[in-house]
């Protein structure tokens, strides 16, 4: 069996605080998960849930209190692994006295790319993120969205096997978001492993093979987006047309949503047969019956609400 691209085992991060640093805040608690090779994995969670903390632990910006993690089979403390990963920080900021081309050239040198390849890669990346015409402008004159694009370009500049993106859609307009989505899909097609954190659930549903939902520093669910929301069945939805007397279906019509002569009614799976019989008996025309599945957003909100209800005063941000 192939080694997963990212393996995380019981990863925990506490931040000491207080005057003598005797108290501690747990930002991440016993995270265990893995991301397979070639997989696009979405890391979902509200602000302060522990997404960025996990990512910073993986790229070596902070150090774990407990637990281990491996990327491409190498421990995260092994700096040689950094040549095979690309990282986009959250709200990236770069040396603003450099132009985009100079910044990418600087990072290409750090990655030890030969001069010929360096120039070709820099040009290709600027084209890919749509900054060809702004290549000679200093980064201090860039907008937030443009900086995000530069950040993405530097993350994939050296053709890494694993790409880790912290909120890659943040600060982008719809066109920019679409372009980032395309880049992530291109990376997937090229066989790269992509781990990205996001608040934008529709992006996660659209792009990810699997998602992990983290709330309050704890992983609350991992799986394919449809699989993960499938854990919470919402019942059945019946769409029917009824023009008859409301007395015949009094109980049901009051629960249904009406649009003209059409009604949309949600019932529990166990009540489906009885409801159908009642509708047919009253002369209603059943147009469709479908399973009601929660969206990822609903599932996500459910977890967040449960966490807040459980521990309303817990501050889990590592910042």
């Amino acid at each position: 069996m192939a080694t997963p691209a990212i393996e995380i085992e019981n990863l925990t991060k506490d931040y000491p605080f207080g005057f003598l640093h005797l108290k501690k805040k747990t930002s991440l608690e016993g995270l265990t998960m893995s991301v397979e090779n070639g997989e696009v994995f979405g890391f979902l969670g509200p602000n302060g849930a522990g997404k960025s903390t996990t990512i910073k632990l993986l790229v070596g910006l902070i150090f774990p209190t407990a637990g281990t993690a491996r990327i491409l089979g190498k421990p995260i403390s092994d700096i040689s692994m950094h040549g095979d990963i690309g990282y986009l920080p959250e709200q990236p900021y770069f040396y603003d006295y450099l132009t985009a081309a100079e910044l990418l050239d600087y990072f290409a040198r750090i990655h030890d790319l030969p001069a010929q390849e360096r120039k070709a890669r820099v040009d290709a990346m600027l084209k890919k993120v749509g900054l060809e015409t702004a290549r000679k402008i200093q980064l201090r004159k860039y907008s937030k969205g443009m900086l995000q694009r530069v950040g993405l370009a530097q993350a994939i500049l050296h053709d890494p096997k694993v790409v880790i993106l912290d909120e890659p859609m943040s600060g982008l307009d719809p066109v920019g978001r679409r372009e980032v989505r395309d880049i992530i899909l291109e990376l997937k097609q090229a066989g790269k492993t992509v781990l990205f954190s996001t608040h934008i659930l529709s992006d996660a549903e659209m792009l990810c093979d699997r998602v992990g939902v983290i709330v309050g520093g704890k992983l609350r669910g991992v799986g394919a987006p449809d699989e993960i929301v499938g854990m919470k069945p919402q019942g059945m939805e019946i769409l029917f047309e009824y023009t008859g007397d409301s007395k015949g279906l009094r109980g049901l019509l009051s629960k249904a949503t009406q649009t003209g002569s059409r009604y949309r009614l949600q019932v529990a799976e166990a009540d489906l047969y009885a409801t159908m019989q009642q509708l047919c008996g009253a002369g209603a025309k059943v147009l469709s019956v479908s399973q009601v599945r929660a969206t990822l957003e609903e599932y996500f909100m459910h977890l967040v609400a449960a966490d807040r209800a459980q521990a309303p005063a817990v501050e889990v941000s590592g910042k």
Binding site: V59, G60, L61, I79, S80, H82, G83, I85, Y87, L88, P89, Q91, P92, Y93, F94, Y95, F107, I110, H111, D112, G151, Q154, A155
Partner: peptide
């Protein structure tokens, strides 16, 4: 403060 070293230290730089 400016977080300019985040991207750099995620590269193979000790």
């Amino acid at each position: 403060d400016k977080r300019t070293l985040y991207a750099l230290l995620a590269k193979p730089v000790r």
